[in-house]
């Protein structure tokens, strides 16, 4: 059995750990609030944008006029963007994303499709580099402060890849924020674009377009990609903070349990030591009497 001093030291160590995890929990909570506000503000915009593009894209013929909306007949190469956090200590958050990506890649490869990877986020990058996957591009620091510029840069690159024929489809794996305790790794097809809600134009609502319908749509489609990208950034960032918060809360609770158990062991050991000493004294006294 461990000595009293060992147990005491252990208790102190666990307490210190719990202080750290508690602090990390609070930091994550503060960051989460900020990120969530930003995300909600952006989603007002993104939602409107989706509506507009849905209306514009309604009834567009799939005749290749809008290349960004035209599916390729044969898909041979795809580009996968994997969003992960730059840091760990957030439970199974990164792992879930990586596993989703790995399954996705395996499935596509078994269909004979070439997959090239853009790893956005240190954790995903490290994982796939260690396994000698071809990582075409690596990006970090995107989720610290999701912003339009980053989304624009990456989005434009992906569009170029698509238009140059270096990728027939572009996918993003990101973490969808459902609630504080549920963040789902999600696969999203970024290109070619399939706008949602195409039936909005019914009721004979005839629009006037300025400039022409085609020009407008051509102008809007790339922006739609950037918005989708930014939306993914935001959702993943919020998910990361939520995951870290939960993980750190669990850790703090576990620390508390540990401290309780250890204190119990400590007290028991202390009692045992006292009893033993008493016995010695009593035994000694008895021996002297005789």
């Amino acid at each position: 059995m461990a000595t009293l001093r060992d147990i005491k030291r252990k208790i102190d160590a666990v307490k210190k750990t719990s202080q750290i995890t508690k602090a990390m929990n609070m930091v994550a909570a503060a960051k989460l609030r900020g990120a969530q506000e930003n995300m909600e503000r952006f989603q007002v915009y993104a939602e409107k944008f989706r509506e507009v593009i849905g209306r514009l894209a309604a009834g567009v013929e799939q005749d290749g006029t809008f290349e960004l909306m035209t599916p390729r007949e044969e898909v041979k190469k795809i580009e996968l963007v994997l969003l992960t956090a730059d840091r760990g200590l957030c439970g199974s958050f990164n792992n879930n994303l990586i596993i989703t990506a790995e399954r996705f890649i395996e499935q596509k490869r078994s269909e004979g499709v070439e997959v090239s990877l853009t790893a956005a986020g240190r954790k995903g990058r490290d994982y796939f580099k260690r396994r000698r996957y071809a990582v075409r591009q690596e990006l970090t620091g995107l989720l610290n402060k999701p912003n339009y510029d980053d989304a624009f840069q990456l989005g434009r690159q992906l569009i170029e890849l698509f238009l140059d024929g270096d990728a027939d489809e572009v996918y993003v794996i990101y973490s969808h924020f459902r609630s504080m305790i549920r963040q789902e790794p999600t696969v999203l097809r970024l290109l070619p674009i399939v706008p949602e809600g195409q039936d909005e134009l019914e009721g004979g609502r005839e629009y006037i377009f300025e400039p022409s319908h085609q020009e407008l749509l051509n102008d809007l489609l790339p922006n739609y990609v950037y918005n989708q990208m930014l939306d993914c950034f935001y959702l993943t960032a919020v998910s990361e903070h939520a995951a870290r918060m939960t993980a750190m809360e669990n850790a703090t609770n576990n620390c508390k349990d540990l401290v309780r158990d250890l204190t119990l062991t400590y007290n028991k050991a202390r009692q045992a030591a006292i009893t033993k000493e008493l016995m010695d004294i009593v035994g000694g006294a008895e021996a002297l009497k005789k």
């Binding site: 209306r55 514009l56 005839e206 629009y207 006037i208 377009f209 300025e210 400039p211 020009e215 407008l216």
Partner: peptide
């Protein structure tokens, strides 16, 4: 983009850059 435009109530649906 093609010039300034004014909108009053009951304008026809219109989409512009």
């Amino acid at each position: 983009e093609m010039g300034e435009f004014g909108v009053l109530h009951n304008h026809i649906p219109f989409l512009s850059k």
